[in-house]
Amino acid sequence: MSNIYGKFFLLSQWIVRKIYPSYRVQIHEKVKDPVVYISHHQNLFNPFVIYLWFPKSLRTWILHVFLDRKMCFRQYVDYTFTKRFGMNRTIAKICAYPVSFIISALLKSGKGIPVYRESRKILETFRLSVEALKRGESIAIYPTIDYTNTSNEAKDMYEGYLFIEKYYFKETGKHVHFVPLYVSKNNRLIISDEPIAFQEGEDFSSGQKRIGEYMKNKLQELAKQCGDIE
Rank of each mutant, 00 (worst) to 15 (best):
D228N: 09
N187W: 01
L219M: 15
I211P: 03
Y158I: 00
I211Q: 02
Y182E: 08
C226M: 15
E165A: 05
H175K: 14
V179C: 11
D228K: 06
K185N: 15
V176S: 06
Y168A: 00
I164G: 00
D156C: 00
K174N: 12
I164W: 01
S206K: 12
I191V: 15
E194Q: 14
V176T: 09
R210P: 10
E194S: 14
Y161C: 04
A223Q: 11
F198M: 12
G212C: 05
S192L: 05
N187T: 02
E153Q: 09
K174S: 11
T172K: 07
S205P: 00
S192W: 06
G201N: 06
I211C: 03
K166G: 02
I196P: 06
G201P: 01
N152E: 08
K170G: 05
L181M: 14
H177V: 00
A223K: 07
T148N: 09
Q225V: 07
E200A: 13
H177E: 12
N149L: 08
F204K: 00
I196C: 08
A197E: 14
K166C: 03
D146Y: 03
Y168Q: 00
E194I: 07
G173Q: 06
R188G: 04
E194L: 10
E194H: 08
T172G: 03
V179H: 11
K170N: 13
E165T: 03
E153M: 05
F204S: 01
E221L: 15
I211G: 02
N152L: 01
R210E: 10
I190A: 05
E165L: 04
Q220G: 11
D228G: 08
D193G: 15
P195T: 02
I191Y: 01
K216V: 09
R188V: 02
